[in-house]
Write a protein that binds this DNA or RNA. Structure first.
Lengths: 217, 217
DNA sequence: CCGCTATGAATGAACG
DNA sequence: CGTTCATTCATAGCGG
């Protein structure tokens, strides 16, 4: 908790031209897209080998370490799970709160992830705590493990195409071979209908930081 | 934790009585009072169960979700801590820290710790903004981080009494039983010898909108 | 009308 | 794996 006093980071860089100097990794839109695609394609917990590969892929869009990828997936899993739980809880609970209806203000708040047992959960709207990104359209790929390269590759392909950074090239099509990692889970879809797999405007869905960060694509 | 999936739109029914649709939760004075009382009473990090209970309580004064409560506590804690830290730092400038610099790395082992999670650029990053504002008076007498006391309940009692919303009844008096939660005890307690503890005018301290304060109670 | 500060929310990183 | 800390983003709200 309080032991980490900032890691030395890697001063050896200079690769990235204009980085606003951030203390922590801030995934670029493209990176997030890739990560989510992978996650949604079923690989929720990539083994180390895969992690490395993914990192290499992501690196084309910006500096990133294996640890970042690892953490990303961890957080992602955790959150998805939580959100699901929360959602279930709220749905099933449908607790009728007879609050005095005093004031009744602010609608922003979200809900909770506590499955809880007694009492209410979740107010009228929104989702749980750790909800991560909300169903990105492009990421809506069903958890079918079979899809493999068809759709996701397309997504990434498009993305790559845009950038067309032909440094190595081979990585792209070999994106996630889904080498028997552990995909299995399907995160109950967002409820809404399954959106078309292709991603038209993912960026809009992914709320990236405004202004400050200009993606170098 | 960090969850929360704030959804930008309100799907359910868009009409709350008198709500200009706020994008984010804005706690009402009474809610803040309650929250701070709880916080000051020592419960700086309420477990889920407690959070839910608190939310229920707060809901009487306005819509709020568990996540909001959760975030509130998180931010509060974080802030208190940081403020203290900077205060201390400022006070004792001649603090010298030594880096252990353990040369050999542990190498493989139990923890997955990837290599350093370096990301982009090196962060000199010294001072953090976000200077927390001053401490509210009644909040200044907590048993958690700065001191110990036991009168916060009085505050809440008063508040509750005023409202007398005995819909469920049990919630109110059972406010914070401090059921073995984690009341962090202390950190530096220096100074504040006496501390009258009693909170005289909490409301005044909380800078609410003076003018248009439509109190639902 | 534009700026600031306060604060809620989101997310990466790490502990247990 | 779940939880917690730390940092950052986004926005409400008042002041100039």
């Amino acid at each position: 908790m309080e032991d980490q006093g900032q890691d030395p980071n890697s001063p050896t860089n200079g690769s990235e031209r204009n980085e606003p100097v951030r203390s922590r990794w801030t995934p670029k839109p493209e990176q997030i897209l890739i990560l989510e695609s992978i996650f949604n394609s079923g690989m929720v917990n990539p083994p180390k080998d895969e992690t490395v590969r993914i990192r290499k892929l992501l690196e084309k869009f910006g500096s990133v370490g294996d640890a970042n990828v690892f953490y990303w997936f961890q957080n992602r899993r955790s959150r998805s799970r939580r959100r699901q739980r929360q959602m279930q809880a709220s749905l099933q609970q449908r607790n009728q709160q007879e609050q005095g209806a005093s004031g009744g203000n602010s609608g922003g708040g979200g809900a909770i992830h506590y499955e809880s047992s007694s009492s209410t959960t979740t107010p009228p709207h929104v989702l749980g705590y750790e909800a991560d990104s909300v169903a990105p359209s492009f990421a809506s790929c069903p958890s079918s493990y079979l899809m493999g390269s068809s759709s996701s590759s397309a997504c990434v392909g498009m993305l790559m195409g845009d950038h067309h950074d032909h440094h190595h090239g081979h990585v792209v099509d070999n994106l996630f071979p889904v080498s028997g990692a552990q995909m299995g889970f399907s995160e109950i879809d967002q409820g809404s209908s399954v959106t078309p797999i292709l991603c038209p405007e993912d960026t809009s869905n992914l709320h990236f930081q405004s202004g400050k960060n200009a993606c170098p694509i």
